[in-house]
Design a protein around this nucleic acid. Sequence first.
RNA 1: GCGGGAGUAGCUCAGUGGUAGAGCAUCGCCUUGCCAAGGCGAGGGUCGCGAGUUCAAAUCUCGUCUCCCGCUCCA
Length: 480
Amino acid sequence: MSAPNIETIVSLAKRRGFVFPSSEIYGGLGSAWDYGPFGVELCNNVKQAWWRWMVYERDDMEGVDSSIILNRLAWKYSGHEDTFSDPLVDCRDCNSRFRADKLDYLPTEEERELPAPEAIAKAIRERRIKCPNCGSKDLTEPRPFNLMFRTHVGAAAEDDPSSLVYLRPETAQGIFINFANVLTTSRRKLPFGVAQIGKSFRNEVTPGNFIFRTREFEQMEMEYFVRPGEDEKIHQDWIDNCFNWFTGLGISANNLRLYEQPKEELAHYAKRTVDIQYRFFPEREEQDRQWDELMGIANRTDFDLRTHSKKPEDAEGKRLNPDSTEDLSYFDEATKERFYPYVIEPAAGVNRTVLSVLMDAYSEKTNDKGETRVILKLHPTLSPIKAAILPLAKNKPEIVGMAKAIKRSLQPLLRAVYDDTGGIGKLYARQDEIGTPFCVTVDHQSLEDEAVTVRDRDTWEQERVKVSELPEHLSTRLKG
RNA sequence: GCGGGAGUAGCUCAGUGGUAGAGCAUCGCCUUGCCAAGGCGAGGGUCGCGAGUUCAAAUCUCGUCUCCCGCUCCA
């Protein structure tokens, strides 16, 4: 089974220390969340699993970590300054919301003279624009939403326009603008990829659904550079590859699906985009609304490398990018051709992956007395705690001492905890609820035979293992 | 921003004018103790905030703040 809804996960996450509402003691901050003791472990494990799969287990991959604040020009030429700023209007009658620049209306002569945003605002005031949904003419004036967070570099520079910078809305641009650096220092040849994990920021108009959509979030992005013409096949390969990564993490294929973005919805840089969606909203009645994006796999063509390059010119021979000092083209020694590589981009959200993993791992088990307990059947690679060392009787100093010693001997190898604050049943249950795959129990017998009981989270089966063989026993099973 | 919903213990929630509660969770002690066992005990809330009405407000009135859901966007 998996979680019936996100609310169930919100409660569990708060109760057990995965995720807390941010700034809670000051009344909270809209849809910002903090990761607690187990949450940070889970996030780190997700990122580590991604990096291993994406970088270490391949032959064609490098990594970078670019800064969050870039030269503003990066966002000018990436297209984000233009496209990440949408004027929005609301219909007061049916409460629908639209992008003002997409509303259909006939401008008057006078309005033709005005900049588009002002013309639209004027037409709305004069009630000449109809709501595309209900036909009402009662629309609010357009309000601009700049999806990029702005700030300023330098002290006391608030009023100096040249100090304006943005917090990055995606990590990808940090890879593109370093393309030449990575290419020359790594001596790579096409095709190859550059991976990056890091925070991104979008001033979302409507964040929400727990950690699904937050204004500050963490991305795992990889830009895979290919020869034009090879892009379509390699794109498809990555789609399959990424889907398998999620199922490999234990997410049920039933809760995953591929979604082909319609042409008219594609981002300004994309030729084709396929999303991997997860069933984040199983409680919704309409099938189609149960799904939302977990990972996007885009064919960005040569848009990014070309737009950041100094060489491309328009029809009149004028440089399209007079600010760039570098040409990001690639020279193929074999064919003696110079060109701008195409880019295939698998981009996933750490937080969304964490949410999907939590939802998918959630299960309940009811005992004879009708009491229900929660078991998080996380993939062992992702579990915040790998092993809990528990004394069967805590009033026997020898048993306690042995359990603590075992915990200490394991901790260089894996994340282990010791717990004696309850009966054994309660201790097991507590570990089940945070997804600890193995509990190691020390009992009276252990004092004589140097062996302990290893109890499996999913099967509840117990196995007697020599203490000397415990590290090997656990590490083979943790690889899952 | 518009519309809707909600703020009482860590979690889930009861309490509609008269001394703030329950279950679970947490902590401690006791019990040779393998699936939330039992016993005893403890901690924890100025009922989102402010004002008003009243002898008396978690409860009624007004204001305000915050959060959640939807609309937009996308990882």
